Computed example of a mutant assay.
Amino acid sequence: MPLFAPLAVFCGAWGFRVVSRKAEPPVRRALLAFGGLVLGSAVLLLWWFKGLELSIAPTRLLRDLPP
């Protein structure tokens, strides 16, 4: 859902920042935080490009109409 993508980016960035690399035993949640950051960003980019495509299509349609 594109509505949750900004939340995924925020939580992924926050989680990646909070994970301690020197913890004993090692905390292995950095990969999950990085995955949330990457997937949230990818959904936002795809949503933006699809919205851009949807806004360009009607203008092309109107431009190609006969006078």
Results as ranks from 00 to 15, higher is better:
L54V: 12
F34Y: 07
G12C: 01
A8Y: 01
L44S: 04
W47E: 06
A13G: 09
S41P: 09
R60E: 12
V9A: 10
L39F: 09
W14T: 11
P2Q: 05
M1S: 10
G36N: 12
F10G: 01
L46D: 07
A23Q: 10
G15T: 01
E53K: 14
F49M: 12
A42H: 12
E53T: 09
V19P: 03
G40H: 00
L62N: 05
E53D: 09
G15P: 00
L3Y: 07
E24C: 10
P58E: 10
K22A: 13
L31R: 13
R29M: 15
V9K: 00
G15V: 02
R63E: 14
F49A: 15
L39T: 05
S41F: 07
R28Q: 14
V27T: 14
P58Y: 06
L45V: 13
S55A: 12
V38A: 15
L37Y: 01
V18A: 08
A5H: 02
P26A: 11
V18Y: 07
M1R: 06
V18N: 02
A8F: 05
L65V: 04
G36E: 09
G40D: 01
L3N: 03
V27A: 14
V18H: 03
K50D: 11
A13K: 03
F34V: 05
V9C: 09
E53M: 14
K50V: 08
K50S: 13
